[in-house]
């Protein structure tokens, strides 16, 4: 087990409201860690601290600060007046020369059989397809870590399944250390190698569950783990 990235004793308050209370999490390299917790418990705040978007009050973020990080948000955040190729090029320009960029974009589009969409504009794509492009952009960006903030939240059930499968496929092809924030238990069990359960505000790490279902694929395991997660979420 390689522990390259971690957060130690993270505390964050907004005025008198304490949101995060002494959070400690280790992120295993090239594995997916799902941060699961009730709505409004401070999951996104923790993610923003990890990404360096907001300041913590105290504690440490180790190994992440100097890394290039890829992001997938709740919304696809594609630029409407750029086609898919240019949307991807927008984030890659600073990282590689033109020919390298062209070949990276082509390689990733080919990888997931989306080459035909290269010159499509976002407005011509469905919500699910847009989010797939957003995930593809994140994987194409040369980073070791991928942070995803409720990336499937705005999708309907069918699209959610397709996009989750798309993520799994890309993750198998292009290994990354992933942190996914979610409030959906099934999502966490389907994607996370490790599930971190946070409590209500002020958030603490309530339980860390190693997701054996990811390895075995056994539905029985999943049911057992789901019960564990549910009981952990209910207990306060």
């Amino acid at each position: 087990m390689i522990l390259k990235y971690s957060v130690k004793n993270i505390v964050k308050s907004y005025g008198p409201l304490k949101v995060l209370d002494n959070i400690n999490i280790d992120f295993i390299e090239n594995k997916t860690t799902c941060i699961l917790g009730p709505s409004g418990c401070g999951k996104t705040t923790l993610l923003n601290i990890i990404a360096g978007i907001i300041e913590k009050d105290s504690g440490e973020v180790l190994g992440i600060q100097n890394e290039d990080i890829s992001f997938v948000f709740q919304e696809d955040r594609l630029i409407e007046w750029k086609n898919i190729k240019d949307n991807m090029a927008f984030v890659l320009k600073n990282k590689m020369n033109k020919s390298e960029m062209e070949s990276t974009i082509d390689r990733f589009l080919n990888l997931v059989n989306l080459k035909e969409y290269k010159y499509y504009y976002p407005r011509n794509l469905s919500g699910g397809m847009r989010q797939r492009i957003s995930i593809l952009r994140a994987f194409a960006y040369p980073s070791k870590m991928l942070i995803m903030d409720e990336p499937f939240k705005s999708l309907d059930i069918n699209n959610k399944k397709i996009v989750m499968e798309f993520f799994r496929e890309l993750k198998t092809l292009e290994n990354r250390t992933c942190i996914i924030v979610t409030h959906d238990i099934d999502e966490a069990l389907d994607l996370g190698d490790r599930i971190i359960i946070l409590s209500e505000k002020p958030s603490r790490v309530k339980k860390v569950i190693e997701n054996t279902y990811m390895e075995t694929g056994n539905e029985e395991d999943k049911r057992g783990l789901k019960l564990q997660v549910e009981s952990a979420l209910m207990r306060d």
Partner: peptide, 23 residues
Amino acid sequence: NIMEMAKLYKVDRFTIIRDIYIP
């Protein structure tokens, strides 16, 4: 949201002006 995305992906200022502000 687009501006935040550009910042997180460390897109340089010139590209942001040319590709976001001017359009």
